[in-house]
């Protein structure tokens, strides 16, 4: 059986949905954070797969930029988590409800 582009897209959609489920069902901030990373990675897989099947290297370059933004996001996000830990002493998402209606 030949591996088609649709197989890669289906796999990527599955990983993305797992990430969505993690964001929506967990309360630990770090795990929510990693679920967001999972979604970013699913999109990266789509980029690379389409780059291979359409022979366009721009997809791989785009993955490079997504990775850079992800690295910046992780640095700032973990800084926020540490600051939150210092102020509230918890990692539960329910303790951050200042702006919640």
């Amino acid at each position: 059986m030949q591996i088609e582009l649709s197989h890669y897209l289906l796999l990527s959609a599955t990983l993305f949905a797992i990430g969505v489920m993690g964001v929506l069902t967990r309360k630990n901030l770090i795990v929510i954070f990693m679920s967001v990373e999972l979604m970013l990675n699913a999109v990266n897989l789509t980029f690379v797969a389409i780059a291979r099947y359409t022979l366009d290297l721009a997809g791989q370059v785009m993955v490079f930029f997504v990775l850079c933004v992800a690295a910046a996001e992780v640095a700032v996000g973990l800084a926020i988590i540490i600051a939150l830990w210092r102020h509230r002493g918890t990692m539960n998402i329910d303790s951050v409800r200042l702006l919640k209606w």
Partner: peptide, 29 residues
Amino acid sequence: VAGIVVATLVLAASFIAIMSNSGTLPSKP
């Protein structure tokens, strides 16, 4: 349950979108 339902909807929507267009996707050059 709401989170799982939303994730399943995302999964189903993308599966339907991919499968209904799988004929037009390029094959591996």
